[in-house]
Design a binder for these strands. Structure first.
Lengths: 195, 195
DNA sequence: GTCTATATCTTGATAGAC
DNA sequence: GTCTATCAAGATATAGAC
């Protein structure tokens, strides 16, 4: 019982870890490009360079694979640390950082791409992504309309993310950070300041 | 050749017109609820109360059915007639009207629901919905950033539509028109006014 | 014009050899 | 641990009877 570990166990665990990581990466790419419905187990396996059956062996079902690939832990510390004057700036940075970091962008796109058609993805966006940011922002805004203002702030940044990165609207996809902040900043400021 | 019209032709044409309309209505409903991939010909036929083969007979392919059901002629005259001070108000009315008219809402949701996963729907939103509104708004905005400001105005209203009507974010789905305009209006005004 | 029957393909998932 | 072979279900689309 004690010494039944085989000498190859490290290699076995290592191989498993690697194939799991490559499967997860391939799944994220395809989910980001095509969404949940058009992403197939076979397609994921092919891009990962493994056998289709191996994907099922590791993750059980397609939904479980999605859940594993689309786990998006939103870093809201940037929003929490901001005062009311910094909030627009922080919010814009928040989304631009997520989509310009190659690591984060995959999962962010994977979740957003399917959020209108896949119930699980919709719940993630509604409750985790928008929900946590809304709660973090509402307290620093304050006032009677705090929740509404926070929700609208989120809606605008969500619209920007979708239009710029997922739909690739020309006028938004091409513009650089500085112009974006310069033009959008005052608008979000008006949203945050209760007049 | 001249008199080969049958006496029943009116009935036949009428029946065809009716079944086509009911198929189109059922397709719009399901497309709005589930999106393109999860909408099946069988499901459309069942909801319309007709035979699945009849759907194909009328529309040829599933993509053609989508094209017919998701033809969204955006009424931008409200945006064209507005001056710079009225633009935020007109823009908000523009989206709220579309989603609160039961007739328009179906097609609007059908297009938006699939715009991230179905290429044709994405093109419609990018070029027709956002494109036409952007062109209409950019000229009244004027200045060097006109296109960018118009695109951002569109992105914000798109985000509002998605969050409120498709994702049903609580804080946005429950609020009424007046509050929405009161809070969002000044923000969009700041977006429109070049400072 | 409408429906029955079916062809053809693709999907997610499983069983078992090695 | 990995792959071959395959199942069962569901999809679009078509052919032909009525």
């Amino acid at each position: 019982m004690v010494d039944d570990e085989k000498p190859m166990s490290l290699t076995r665990a290592e191989r498993r870890r690697r194939s799991e990581a490559s499967i997860l990466g391939a799944a994220r790419e395809l989910l980001a490009e095509r969404g949940f419905e058009r992403t197939t187990i076979r397609g994921v396996a092919e891009r990962a360079g493994v056998d289709p059956a191996l994907v099922m062996q590791h993750f059980g079902t397609k939904d479980d694979l999605f859940a594993a690939a689309a786990t998006w832990s939103v870093p809201i510390h940037g929003l929490l640390g901001a005062g009311r004057e910094d909030l627009p700036h922080a919010a814009i940075e928040h989304v631009l950082d997520a989509f310009e970091d190659p690591e984060l962008r995959g999962t962010a796109e994977a979740v957003l791409r399917s959020c209108l058609t896949h119930p699980a993805a919709g719940t993630i966006v509604r409750e985790q992504v928008l929900g946590s940011a809304q709660a973090a922002v509402a307290t620093t805004i304050g006032g009677p309309d705090a929740e509404l203002r926070a929700a609208l702030l989120n809606a605008c940044t969500l619209g920007l993310s979708i239009a710029r990165y997922l739909l690739a609207v020309p006028a938004l996809a091409d513009v650089d950070r500085a112009d974006l902040e310069r033009v959008l900043g005052p608008a979000l400021q008006a949203l945050v300041d209760p007049t």
